[in-house]
Design a binder for these strands. Sequence first.
DNA 1: TATTTCACTTTCCTTTAGGAAAGTACTATA
DNA 2: TATAGTACTTTCCTAAAGGAAAGTGAAATA
Lengths: 116, 116
Amino acid sequence: MAAKKACNECLSTVKPVRDALDVINGKWKLPIIISVTTGNERFTDIQESVPGITPKVLAKELKDLEQHRLIKRVVVEDYPVKILYKPEPYADTLSPIIYALKDWGVNHRKKIFEKE
Amino acid sequence: MAAKKACNECLSTVKPVRDALDVINGKWKLPIIISVTTGNERFTDIQESVPGITPKVLAKELKDLEQHRLIKRVVVEDYPVKILYKPEPYADTLSPIIYALKDWGVNHRKKIFEKE
DNA sequence: TATTTCACTTTCCTTTAGGAAAGTACTATA
DNA sequence: TATAGTACTTTCCTAAAGGAAAGTGAAATA
């Protein structure tokens, strides 16, 4: 029954991890959230702050993040109209994930450069 | 200069997060690592513990994880030959990420079911 | 009047991920 | 001898991700 015990223990972690990955999966979602939560509000600013992203991809990812209630698109009725992207409070709940990934990434890069 | 300040602050997080994502990106890598670190060692056991994975995908992901020194493939010269997958010590460094994702996933599921 | 900025969209294309189903080579067991 | 298990591989396919380049429409600025 060792296998079954491992299997249950494993599933209780695998399932929620997959739920999380379904939301933040991909190359761009977390970088965009980081950009927006550090104060970038305008489309062009976000685009410039996330190296390599194209406007097509950014537009699509912003829509996804809006649907998941992680950011909101705010239309400011000035002349000219301004569009701002703001983090929703729910985006803050991602910070443990972001910082865990950041720390690991910093260390990983060190490890790679040491070895080679 | 507010934009530039935000941009630098943002980049110092975005870059390492992307380094981390380059390693653990995708639907399957973390679930497989979870399975192996909770004690599943055999190909078939891992396959059964990760719902929905096909042997083709598992074989490919195991190779990737071996290359990144997160698991190792051990050939036991019995009759018949056994193949075991074991976590490398480096896999343990992923646990803050895994637990952050797990916690968030658990909460996210709660949130979804409350609302709907 | 011409150019620039903003926030995208559109088109076209390549790459990667992923899945279904069957097959394989070996060994063990009934 | 027949069946089952192990650890995959192979083939064929679809869908999603991603990228390059150009375009758009409105308004602001030179």
